[in-house]
Amino acid sequence: MMTDLMDTAREIVRQWAFVLAVSPILPGIVAKTKAWFAGRRGPPLLQPYRDIFKLFRKGAVYSRTTTWLFRAGPVVSFSAALAATLIIPLGGMESPLTFQGDLILFAYLWGLSRFFTMTAALDTGSAFEGMGASREAAFSCLAEPALLLGLLALAREAGSFSMSDVLSVGLIRIWSIHAPALCLVTAAFLVVFLTENSRIPVDDPNTHLELTMIHEVMVLDHGGPDLALIEYGSAVKFFALGALLVRIVCPIRSGGFWEGGAALVIGLAALSVLVGVIESTMARLRLSRIPQLLALSFVLSGFGVILTLAAGS
């Protein structure tokens, strides 16, 4: 029993060390791809590490109107993202944290993180940040059903509500039977991925124009270590949700932790390039169009569920 616990603890520490070491390079790859499209040289790949390091050494300024909620926001969202990475199997074996129903925990850890980011934004008392919080709430409640229905379709085919079972070798068999359904779910997850990470068709991470900001406006008042945690947390979120997507598209799990991890990082790098291409070639959608996109992604996921149900009956 004791040795089991020690083993689990060691796995958790190893996985976290891996995620924390690798994740900041992904925004760097996205930035590099966008720079390449624009014909610029762009920031170096390791720039996000430097930014985070720089921010951690700074002090923070807190407004007198804020309470502990404001300080809790970055900490909770960072920890929720880290906790979610434990559910995704990185290497060849099962993830360190696996139980029936961890799919639902995975979906709602993002809900928890979002809730605290929004309360922190509202806590500043700024009408501007409240507007961002309201937009975030509206769009996330449209993206959530798409994620959950997609997970439901996967769980039904895998016959298990555990992420490690869903993203296992069995997925290859599911691909051979239900390729259309899985394509639909993958497309829906790509939309959810872009929404959750505040990426371009939904939100522009670089914009600072009042009318269009969603995520960026909520973190305007954070500085120093808090901002570092937010940046780091968003990189980890990119890693976790991206890992889910990469695992679905190429379900091959090689033997060990390191080979599997390396394969996953290559997949994630490809995904980052794809995000960079999407950001360079597409324009941000008008705010009134975003619910349409999310409703379509919901329909894609739901259609995936219907297809798996129809084939089963």
């Binding site: 409703a295 329909v299 739901g302 219907i306 129809a310 009956s313």
Partner: peptide, 21 residues
């Protein structure tokens, strides 16, 4: 509106899959 009609369309799809058999 577009969102409402897509959702109605989804309900139609689900019903059609029930009745299609």
């Amino acid at each position: 509106g577009p969102v409402a009609s897509v959702l109605v369309g989804f309900a139609i799809l689900a019903a059609a899959f029930r009745a299609g058999a």
